[in-house]
């Protein structure tokens, strides 16, 4: 059980929070709020799944928020230009994959540290977007854009289903496919992985590409919830995602962690903000509470274990 210490401690934190809400503000579990919380968390979860791969191979990507904005805007502009959604969605995913491939190339082929590479691309993409769009919304989108033209409840269903599918595929892929095990191998010991016949560079590059593609998908999942696209969308996404992943127990030193922990971590963070509204806590405490929960969730697991290691 010690192996899943963090998964358990985070799930426990989530359950405590939900229990508090169940007692003090049962309305939190109303169908509408639950759906809203989950559909808002779905894109974050999709990105977090990709981020898990990247962190498992011992890298990090802090440019996901900027990639997310670029993909959202491209999806919005294409939809407005009259392209059908069956083209818009792949285009957004391809854009994300391309941006991810660029990061991955710099990291895997040139051997640059990923935190710095993605810091650079984080700033560059965001500023380029600001320069080009000047903060203007993409407006007047065709009706087939919001909820993919299927109406609200069907649209929400699609978003949740896609997120669940991505999650399930990655859980399966990481756990039961040779390719997935290679990710753990490279993250645990790069040199050993190489000697075992794995090409660490390719696996690393692949992780960035998958993350990028998932960012592109998440951008669409998020954008179709609305009637227009805000170019500032995705601001701070990297923090939400990285916090969710590491709180969920994925080690930043690579090679250790599961997607189940990530799921719990993302849900925990996604619940905090609406929970504060329901608990009627003053908003100025929000960031302090968020930081406190991250530290406690991470420290709780470690406190129990440090005597052993």
């Amino acid at each position: 059980m010690k192996r899943f210490g963090r998964e358990l401690s985070v799930t426990a934190s989530l359950l405590v929070l939900l229990a508090v809400l169940a007692v003090t503000a049962p309305a939190f579990f109303g169908k509408q709020q639950l759906l809203a919380t989950l559909t808002a968390a779905a894109p974050v979860l999709v990105v977090a799944c990709g981020m898990t791969l990247v962190i498992l191979v011992r890298q990090i990507d802090i440019s996901v928020g900027s990639q997310f904005a670029v993909c959202s805007i491209i999806a919005g502009l294409m939809a407005r230009a009259g392209y059908p959604m069956v083209l818009v969605v792949p285009a957004s995913i391809a854009t994300g994959a391309l941006l991810g491939a660029f990061n991955g190339w710099l990291v895997a082929a040139l051997g640059l540290p990923s935190i710095v590479v993605t810091l650079a691309t984080f700033v560059s993409w965001r500023e380029t977007l600001r320069w080009v769009r000047e903060g203007e919304f993409v407006k007047d989108l065709p009706d087939r854009f919001q909820w993919l033209g299927m109406g609200q409840s069907a649209g929400q269903g699609v978003i949740l289903a896609v997120a669940a599918l991505v999650f399930a595929l990655l859980v399966y892929g990481l756990g039961w496919i040779a390719l997935g095990r290679r990710v753990y191998a490279v993250g645990s010991d790069r040199e050993a992985a190489r000697l075992a016949g794995i090409r660490p560079g390719r696996v690393t590059w692949g992780a960035f590409v998958v993350l990028g593609a998932l960012v592109g998908l998440a951008a669409v999942l998020n954008a179709i919830r609305f009637a227009d696209v805000d170019p500032k969308t995705g601001t701070g996404l990297e923090m939400q995602v990285i916090a969710g992943v590491v709180v969920g127990g994925v080690a930043v030193s690579g090679g250790r962690g599961t997607l189940w922990g990530v799921l719990a971590g993302v849900l925990l963070l996604a619940c905090i903000s609406p929970a504060l509204v329901f608990l009627k806590l003053p908003p100025q405490w929000e960031k302090a509470i968020q930081g406190g929960i991250i530290l406690v969730a991470v420290a709780a697991d470690r406190g129990g274990r440090s005597r052993l290691s």
Partner: peptide
């Protein structure tokens, strides 16, 4: 607690600002 600095300071980033 031997936590990674990245995570600790990510948490205290929110905490201090908060």
């Amino acid at each position: 607690l031997r936590l990674p600095p990245l995570i600790v300071t990510l948490g205290s980033l929110s905490l201090f600002r908060g």
